[in-house]
Design a protein around this nucleic acid. Sequence first.
DNA 1: CTGAAAGCGCTTACAG
DNA 2: CTGAAAGCGCTTACAG
Lengths: 360, 360
Amino acid sequence: MPKVERSASLREVAALADVSIQTVSNVLNAPHIVKSKTREKVLWAINDLEYIPNLSARRLRSKKSSSIAVRLDPNFSEGQDSKGLAPGFIQDEFVYCLVEAANTRGIKVIAYTVANGDSELSKLKTFINSRDVDGIILTATREKDERLEFLEASNSPFLSFGRPWGAAGMFSTSNPWIDIDGRSGTAAATQMFWDSNKRTIGFIGWENQQPKDGVARSTGEDRYLGWFEKLRELSGKSRSDISLATFGGESIESGRRAARELLHAAPELDAVVCVSDTLALGCLLEFQKKGLNHILVSGFDNSPVSKEFGFSSLDQNLSEVAESALKVLMGATGFQIRKVDFSAEHTNAHILLEPKLIVR
Amino acid sequence: MPKVERSASLREVAALADVSIQTVSNVLNAPHIVKSKTREKVLWAINDLEYIPNLSARRLRSKKSSSIAVRLDPNFSEGQDSKGLAPGFIQDEFVYCLVEAANTRGIKVIAYTVANGDSELSKLKTFINSRDVDGIILTATREKDERLEFLEASNSPFLSFGRPWGAAGMFSTSNPWIDIDGRSGTAAATQMFWDSNKRTIGFIGWENQQPKDGVARSTGEDRYLGWFEKLRELSGKSRSDISLATFGGESIESGRRAARELLHAAPELDAVVCVSDTLALGCLLEFQKKGLNHILVSGFDNSPVSKEFGFSSLDQNLSEVAESALKVLMGATGFQIRKVDFSAEHTNAHILLEPKLIVR
DNA sequence: CTGAAAGCGCTTACAG
DNA sequence: CTGAAAGCGCTTACAG
């Protein structure tokens, strides 16, 4: 391969095709307004010179970066409490799917991190005000969130992955979000067990995440309610009789302990719906140790752990999440990020997608 | 927060500070050449207007994007063979550390994917020729690699994470790389077991990765040799007597089977060095099942699995890898990506970093 | 040390 | 349908 000095500019393409710079630009950005004969001549020149537009120039002039930013989080914790077997799995998969979906739409994705000390808000301000990105994908938004306030005030397109649990403004159009319906997921797992003639179906959730009423205030409570309500519907039992649930931290050891607690409460236990793959594995290992291989277990996330150990799990379907997110920010078929007026448009500001039960 | 229309431009800052646009630019890019009194006046105006430079304009004019690109890979496999418990763990962690290190140096990171069908080469050409990035971080390079050839020909800065195993040109300056020294890692694990008075130390590697001679041709062979040579050194045995090794695919089940094979070959087995955390866990679970809790096990990657199950593992120290990678591309203290002439400069084109043994 | 001019490579707005 | 002009917001090169 010969040394390549630099790539051609519009000017050179125009000279070769014997048209104006502007016509070449039109062939690229509005081909339909160029006469087909001219267009072909220009395309030939573009191809011949291997012309690739300078994106900085395009962005400066058009005032569109065709880029979005997304935060990356660390998967390791220095010491501290256990975060389970796949702490960053969902986030990393989501980012992968987002990049893939964005690239398909001609959008670049800039990854950023927030290291100890610097504020995410100042990073977002810099991204937006330097015109480096057109929009932002947020994660882990809260009710009073300075990021939301800034993005709203600066009129920047954005979307959150995940609901701001417990926030009064969860359904406010000023915090548009897309999320997975955990409740319907654990309900589906419960239904599957029931259909396999399991009648004593327990639940293992995260500690401090058991709803006091029928309303979920966290991901864990939401997944609990899916099991609870579905079991009530199927069994015809009263609320107070649906009580085969226990809770623990996100660790193998918690899963083992929870399994023992459930067995103690109901020796006839024959299935367990778990809030996570980590707890499901702990539970499964405890049953194996006791030779109770007939008890079925389900987890959440469809992580490599669930595949490797062969238990059912709920896949969050992140490529669909990513595509839906871009559909909100760009419209169904558009190629540009734009601000959506949810109060006026037909686009829903809050999207809930079904997880997919992977039966193993 | 009030609606913000748009951020200020250099022109407005200059007007407020009562200097020329050029002086404001100098305060930003070459503060030392501006008289301190002028500089303060300008900084006050910048602060007052919350001025943030337009990056597209800066990039267009300066011909530097201050960005690099890195590829993201999917962690899920559709069916197929097992890829273990943490298939994308190292790659994802590396990307996180790279973004963090790059941001500290004022460099943006654009993530890209290569979906089935499109070629990575054409993506790289577009990145480079559209002036979207100044350099590329490659992964999984091979001996004859069209990506290397293109980047070389276009005179673009780049660096590979990982060695092109088995390639004659592994030490060619046209493929600069940074990698982790797996061999010294498994040697360190072997030494640790020896120091704990373990004398029958086995090894579990990946299938088809056992060196025929003393030369490694893959990551798995490299890690095997670390165990082999260290054990030979410590035990004083001859080559043919160091044979307590077995191999399998990257799965829990393989680890279990390998553990049984090692026990069969040497019932006095008291430690096992494994090529991966997945194999280590399979091995550990098999020992636990048999009540052989005195046998120590080590893995590789220091993934959440090793933390959760409490066995020793080798941490790849990816933040150091990322920082070292940028040191190659930017120099020790620079803030710009530049092409390195390895044949002339003192920078080494091939960097091998030590993994860190995490003892549990 | 500071400023007036040029220009990076495009797209926009508009005249023809 | 096509082209001449303007200009996006900076940095560079250079004159003073």
